[in-house]
């Protein structure tokens, strides 16, 4: 494979952060391969998103400006396939997200491409592309090389840099497939405020069993997350108790994340949870019990009452930020 194609997810007229990371990485890997870097955008806003992508050093941005196509998987797979086949053997970068995995896996099955999921590093050795991914909850890191002409790498959000640089990407229209799609989206419902998910946030404040109920997730944890510009996460115990929705769950049956800062409040840190957050750069835990397992791998464990520490912390963080501003 010589060329690299980034599949761009977007919503409300904005490209997703992980997609910008994919665009920037596409350039970096294409340079190592001596090939070209591309982006593929589908949906009614494709032209607007393409303009945003022009601040990244790509060679071509392919758009399918078809309203509603961004809601379905099939049009994206068709668009990606047509661009990939025109480009020749190439590496496809998608986000390791719900949509990225769907589009990537279907594309891969269609063209017989290898797939590497949850990729944290891409290496090129003698023209061969290999991906590093944590497996078994970060217990081991595998390096897997592609044996196929095409390859798909689903990159973990927040790990690759999104470097803007002057580029002269051409915007190219993708010919519509002309297919009628069997899946119909009848309604799209927003249940949560448009906030950054735990996978993409650089700071995550999570609550566990020690929160005792749903209230702290809406009040003190949310407030601390807001002060730090982050997202609210939760342990399985909190989600199973119905205190917060499953989308916020960090851990083995939830999401695996790598934020810069992870603050675990009232979470013991059992293996179930640990595998979802142990690759955070910095881990801070607040717990009333000094003997909890999280103390064995947190960078800082503060033993005390979360209900007084968390609000005070939000205040002190705001004060510290005000000094800088």
């Amino acid at each position: 494979m010589r060329n690299v194609i980034a599949f761009i997810e977007h919503k409300n007229g904005q490209a997703r952060r992980v997609s910008l990371e994919a665009a920037s990485t596409a350039r970096a890997v294409a340079d190592l391969l001596g090939g070209t870097a591309h982006a593929v955008i589908v949906g009614g806003d494709a032209a607007t998103i393409a303009q945003q992508l022009q601040t990244y050093p790509l060679d071509a941005i392919h758009i399918l400006a078809d309203a509603g196509a961004e809601k379905l998987i099939d049009p994206a797979v068709d668009a990606l396939t047509s661009v990939a086949q025109a480009a020749g053997p190439s590496l496809i970068l998608v986000g390791n997200t719900m949509i990225g995995r769907d589009v990537g896996s279907r594309f891969a099955a269609r063209v017989g491409a290898g797939v590497n999921a949850d990729v944290i590093e891409i290496v090129v050795d003698g023209g061969r592309v290999a991906c590093l991914s944590p497996k078994l909850g970060g217990l081991t890191i595998t390096t897997c090389a592609f044996k196929s002409d095409y390859g798909v790498a689903a990159i973990r959000p927040n790990v690759f840099a999104a470097k803007q640089a002057a580029g002269a990407a051409q915007i190219v229209a993708i010919a519509p497939s002309g297919k009628a799609y069997a899946v119909t989206v009848e309604e799209e419902v927003e249940e949560a405020a448009a906030e950054l998910g735990v996978e993409e946030a650089s700071v995550v404040v999570s609550g566990g069993r020690g929160m005792g109920g749903p209230e702290p997730f809406k009040t003190i944890l949310r407030d601390l997350a807001d002060a730090l510009g982050g997202a609210v996460g939760a342990s399985r115990a909190a989600v199973d108790a119905g205190w917060i929705s499953h989308g916020h769950q960090v851990g083995q049956t939830g999401k695996t994340i790598s934020p810069q800062l992870y603050i675990a409040v009232g979470i013991s840190g059992a293996i179930q949870h640990k595998v979802g957050m142990r690759t955070a750069e910095t881990i801070v835990a607040i717990n009333k019990d000094g003997g909890v397992p999280i103390g064995e791998f947190a960078d800082l464990l503060v033993v005390g009452d979360a209900f007084t520490i968390v609000p005070e912390l939000a205040k002190q963080v705001r004060d510290a930020k005000a000094v800088h501003a």
Binding site: D299, V302, V303, D305
Partner: peptide
């Protein structure tokens, strides 16, 4: 590895240790 462990007497002290 195991990091630092700080016992917080009250909310302000715990918050200060983290900040």
């Amino acid at each position: 590895g195991k990091g630092r462990v700080v016992a917080a007497a009250d909310g302000a002290a715990g918050a200060k240790a983290i900040v």
